[in-house]
Design a protein around this nucleic acid. Structure first.
Length: 465
RNA sequence: GUCCCUAUCGUCUAGCCCGGCCUAGGACACCGGCCUUUCACGCCGGCGACGGGGGUUCGAAUCCCCCUGGGGACGCCA
């Protein structure tokens, strides 16, 4: 059996979409599992809409997700000679013909057909034109068979058949001389020896036309696997109005790539009851046989849960570096504050995203405490004045600033003041962080360090008076 | 309108191919409880589905047909 060759072929007309990322992932996983090749091809035949920024954005997103390709990126815009030659070949063999109908005429016919309830396919006006030369601009159409049927065995959906009469003579070369998608995708997949095409199931309708083209060009037909779409909560095609659809937007919102990868692959694919998969495990366990046939709804809540899981179990050092990035984004310098990794250790249980964690972490780095008005009003009450004084004095004299020691010191203060733990801890938490939620009170003091802890205690005493 | 795909809890899904083990399993969310120094984490429990109708069969979530619902395509976009 020959080696598996798969590809991901995005068009550079925007950022990498969540759906595209999942398709790419399926391809990547298969290639790695089978020891095959994963090829990246940039489909930029629409010169007007393709941009370098989009190419960069796609590359960046793929790298972030951890997918590296074995070949490419191959740019279709650099292969126009090849396509032109193939168009020539079909023309010479009479398998394609020139069509002089204008875009306006076609549009009018299409609308009329749709209105009359007919299928809006090309009526074949220029099909029989022979040896007629005209100076008018023309497109090249593929001469599709008008009868018979085209069948293929989809690796996910099973056998699919189309009656050829449903297909029309599609345009393979535009009037400006550039080739169109359905043509180049066939030429490239064949020339690049792609053995399996894994793509979104919105391409199912294109498949029979493409198979006909493979045959006309004398190429072997590859296997196909059409992956179901991702829908929004209202079951319509996933779009911006359902939330972020850009892969990189998730990074900016504080998601970990492993969480997105895990979520995306599990969406439409499963392996028993297992929910958590590392990339390595996915490579071992992924298979097209276990991919579902129906579309699935994108569920942000579950992605969030996975993200929380990976934050909880991730390496603190690495997470600390990522957290620093988010802190800087918020205009907060980490310079003289606690080590980010230590902050991560204190907060990893209570943040679902790194962005959330950055918000919770801000108070350990800012020089000024930002008080939550409700919390301050409730806990920073005058009656606590003397207890705070006692605590301040005890802490001023503490030479061993670490959690276990501070806990003993705190206990002493409780004993002296006769207060229950919660009665003092909560107000102190507000004094130290500005809010009423967070890590253990002594853990906070350690993060803050002696100097800042004392300063904030003094500030609070000032507020109580 | 035509063609194609599809159909198990609100959502992701297991089971379906090889009918009985399914009084349909897991996960997210939600609700309740436990733990607790706050917020979380964690743990325990609960709620909750085979779209409808016909067949086939001793027996169907599982096989067949129809209907309905949902999605996609019908571009000189990809």
């Amino acid at each position: 059996m020959s080696k598996l060759r798969v590809r991901f072929a995005p068009s550079p007309t925007g950022y990498l979409h969540i759906g595209g990322a999942r398709t790419a992932l399926f391809n990547y996983l298969l290639a790695r599992k089978e020891g095959g090749s994963f090829i990246l091809r940039i489909e930029d035949t629409d010169v007007a809409r393709s941009t370098q920024e989009s190419v960069d954005a796609i590359l960046q997103a793929m790298e972030w997700l951890g997918m590296q390709c074995d070949e490419g990126p191959v740019f279709q815009s650099a292969r126009f000679d090849l396509y032109r030659q193939k168009v020539r070949q079909l023309l010479d063999q009479g398998l394609a013909y020139r069509c002089y109908c204008t875009a306006e005429e076609l549009e009018a016919k299409r609308e009329q057909a749709l209105q009359e309830g007919r299928k809006p396919k090309y009526d074949g006006t220029c099909r029989a034109l022979q040896g007629t030369f005209s100076e008018r601009p023309f497109v090249v159409r593929f001469r599709a068979p008008g009868s018979g049927a085209t069948t293929f065995e989809d690796r996910i959906k099973g056998p699919i058949t189309f009656q050829n009469e449903e297909l029309d003579d599609l345009i393979i070369q535009r009037s400006d001389g550039t080739p169109t998608y359905n043509f180049v995708v066939v030429v490239d997949d064949a020339e690049m020896a792609i053995s399996l095409v894994v793509r979104g199931d919105d391409h199912i309708n294109n498949t029979p036309r493409q198979i006909l083209l493979y045959q006309a060009l004398g190429y072997p037909v590859p296997d196909f696997a059409h992956v179901p779409m991702i829908l929004g909560a209202d079951k319509s095609r996933l779009s911006k109005r359902h939330g972020a659809t850009s892969v990189m937007a998730y990074r900016d919102m504080g998601y970990l790539p492993e969480a997105l990868v895990n979520y995306l692959v599990r969406l439409g694919w499963s392996c028993g009851d297992q929910e958590i998969f590392s990339m390595q495990e996915l490579i071992e366990k992924f298979s097209l046989e276990a991919v579902g046939k129906s579309a699935s709804v994108f569920n942000p809540e579950k992605l969030l849960w996975l993200n929380a899981h990976y934050i909880k179990h991730g390496d603190s050092q690495r997470l600390g570096e990522l957290l620093t990035g988010h802190l800087v984004q918020k205009g907060i310098e980490v310079g003289d504050g606690p080590a980010p990794a230590a902050v991560v250790d204190a907060l990893k249980e209570r943040a679902k995203t790194l962005l959330e964690m950055a918000e919770q972490a801000a108070c350990y780095y800012r020089s000024e405490v930002v008080f939550d008005p409700d919390a301050a009003a409730k806990f920073l009450v005058p009656a606590l004045g003397s207890a705070f004084e006692t605590l301040l004095r005890r802490m001023e004299g503490e030479g061993d600033w670490q959690e276990s020691t501070l806990e003993r010191a705190f206990e002493e203060v409780l004993h002296q003041t006769g207060l229950k733990f919660g009665k003092l801890a909560q107000p102190v938490r507000v004094a130290l962080t500005g809010g009423s939620a967070g890590p253990g009170i002594c853990q906070i003091m350690v993060l803050l360090g002696k100097e800042r802890t004392l300063a904030r205690l003094r500030q609070a005493i000032g507020m109580l008076a």
